[in-house]
């Protein structure tokens, strides 16, 4: 277990470096929410999900929907590092002709299971996939990463009630609870109240974890496997901009790229581990 955790922690550092490199190179993008998602995305792709990078369309694969699509550097990074496409493509993010659009395009990027970017839509797509997989007797699961700000969208709760009605225990929503949205802190823009209580009230089984403690993330993933007749919400308590001291918990790092000096400083920090 110790080695497993240590290995994943190292992978998460690689992910963060790749995230910052591609956003810096692009000159625009969303570092804050990409960094807050880096640890659970690492755990999913390197440990939890049944996937085959050489066969992105594998019928039995677990699906991942990045409903908070603006955080796509985290997804592109893990796909590049896992070998879904040539790593050097990360330098083309947001550039003309690139497969790496500003938000994920399932028809351009091998390994992207759903096009996303308009907040609030991904969980419904996950519900459709989960219903279809059950119909096909396919044991694959569907993971949907949601921003905490994103769950202000009403469609999320429409999807939540449908998932509960159809007892979709093959659907797992991960709420990236970093407390920050575009315009500021969620508590100031639109307070979310008792997030765990809301999901429970909608009929979901809620597991809370420290979204940056790899051991706790693995514990949450392990616990979700025992849930029989409910969709699972993993409430991952995270820090926006996690891993880079001057980005951590600073709302202005939601959607700007680091300049040359900031980038160098961030990479230097990451080399020392987080």
């Amino acid at each position: 277990m110790e080695n497993r955790v240590k290995n994943l922690e190292e992978k998460a550092i690689d992910l963060r470096k790749t995230i910052l490199t591609m956003i810096h190179e692009a000159g625009s993008g969303h570092p804050g929410g990409s960094l807050s998602a880096a640890d659970y995305v690492t755990a999913l792709y390197y440990d939890e999900m049944n996937i085959d990078p050489s066969n992105p369309k594998l019928r039995e694969r677990d699906r991942f929907i990045l409903s908070k699509g603006h955080a796509c550097p985290v997804l592109y990074s893990v796909l590049a590092l896992k070998g879904y496409f040539d790593y050097d493509k990360i330098y083309t993010l947001r550039k003309l002709g690139s497969i790496l659009q500003g938000h994920p395009d399932m028809n351009k990027v091998p390994g992207v299971d759903m096009t996303s970017g308009s907040l609030g839509q991904g969980l419904s797509c996950g519900v459709g996939m989960a219903i279809g997989l059950k119909y096909d007797n396919n044991a694959a699961r569907v993971f949907v990463a949601l921003g905490d700000g994103e769950i202000q969208e009403g469609q999320i709760w429409e999807a939540a009630e449908t998932a509960a009605k159809y007892k979709l225990n093959n659907l797992i929503a991960i709420v990236d609870n970093n407390g920050i949205q575009n315009d500021g802190f969620t508590k100031d823009i639109m307070p979310l109240g008792n997030i765990a209580g809301k999901w429970q009230a909608f009929g979901w089984f809620v597991i809370e974890c420290d979204g940056h403690d790899m051991k706790d993330i693995l514990r949450a993933f392990n616990e979700m496997k025992s849930v029989k007749e409910q969709p699972v919400c993993i409430l991952a308590n995270t820090v926006k901009g996690k891993g880079v001291s001057f980005m951590a918990n600073v709302p202005s790092w939601h959607g700007v790229a680091p300049n040359k000096e900031e980038f160098a400083k961030a990479i230097e920090e990451l080399k020392g581990g987080i």
């Binding site: 991904g122 519900v127 459709g128 219903i131 279809g132 009403g154 449908t162």
Partner: peptide
Amino acid sequence: PERHINVGIAEQNAAGVAAGLATLGK
């Protein structure tokens, strides 16, 4: 019945559920 989904009064969700099903070739 196994191929009929009633999402209730929630049209936006209906559209997304359809998109998700379509990714599986439905």
